[in-house]
């Protein structure tokens, strides 16, 4: 409970407070839950499905013997997002780490430009990936601010927001998703600036190819990283206070090149 000063300490290590993960069912987020517990955080898993979130929380608690909690939320409903943080604080105490991991690739970019189905699909993609993610980050920042000064280990309370390399340049195949993620990256940038002097850190995360359902069976010359490696990179970024994390690291260079292609040329390409 929040009054308990020993937090979630175990025999091996001091407690670090609670890590809240929104969108815990993605393979990267799930691996993050396991790694965060291993590193000494209690874990609160939130997902669209209460059942799936509970299974992840159970797994983390069996593996690590850390305290865990879980609940369902709806990325399109800000009240349910706020409820996640309230419940996490109530059940597990001070919030020290927040991961905003949910997203929806959607299915926009078909033949029917501007059609009714297209508009509906685009709205959902924008709402989940921009509005939902931005509001979750705002609420998460509030929760982290409430826990400031409570750390026994001297960790800086940190918000990790998963944007995307797709947000670095608009492309025909996924510009609805890309623009929402690009906007979300800007939101995180502003939030980082605002929270800096208040003592909360914000990491903007841009993943390249990770071995998830999205890339399963994909034939590519670019190496694909495991979700667990991605999760470890997230924890390391939080520890080191990284501002913008590209993972695997070479995606920073790939996206630099892609951003550098002149628009007159880029609009003719199908990358």
């Amino acid at each position: 409970m929040s009054e308990d000063v020993t937090e979630n300490a175990t025999e091996d290590q001091p407690g670090r407070g609670c890590a809240v993960v929104l969108g815990a069912t993605s393979p990267i987020a799930e691996a993050f839950c396991r790694r965060a517990a291993e590193a000494g955080y209690s874990v609160f898993a939130a997902a669209r499905s209460a059942e799936a979130a509970a299974a992840i929380a159970a797994d983390v608690s069996v593996r690590s013997r850390q305290s865990t909690g879980s609940c369902a939320f709806d990325a399109l409903d800000a009240a349910t997002i706020e409820a996640v943080f309230a419940q996490a604080e109530q059940e597990l105490g001070r919030i020290a780490l927040v991961l905003v991991a949910f997203g929806d690739m959607g299915d926009v970019g078909g033949a029917d430009v501007g059609g009714a189905g297209e508009l509906e699909a685009a709205r959902r993609v924008l709402d989940v990936n921009y509005t939902g993610a931005a509001l979750a980050s705002e609420a998460g920042a509030g929760a982290l601010l409430r826990g400031i000064g409570g750390s026994q280990t001297g960790d800086v309370p940190t918000l990790l927001g998963i944007a995307s390399v797709a947000g670095d340049r608009g492309r025909q195949s996924n510009y609805a998703y890309g623009s929402a993620k690009g906007g979300y990256a800007l939101y995180l940038q502003g939030l980082r600036n605002r929270l800096f002097k208040l003592g909360v850190h914000v990491v903007t995360v841009k993943f390249g190819f990770i071995d998830t359902p999205m890339t399963h069976g994909m034939k590519t010359a670019i190496p694909i990283a495991s979700p667990d490696a991605a999760a470890q990179a997230l924890l390391k970024a939080a520890r080191k206070g990284t501002d913008v994390l590209y993972f695997p690291f070479f995606w920073r260079f790939i996206m630099f090149i892609i951003r550098s292609i002149p628009e007159r040329l880029f609009k003719r390409l199908s990358l």
């Binding site: 690739m105 195949s173 998703y177 990358l271």
Partner: peptide
Amino acid sequence: MTDAPSSH
């Protein structure tokens, strides 16, 4: 790029 469609 990360745009293979697949949530199912």
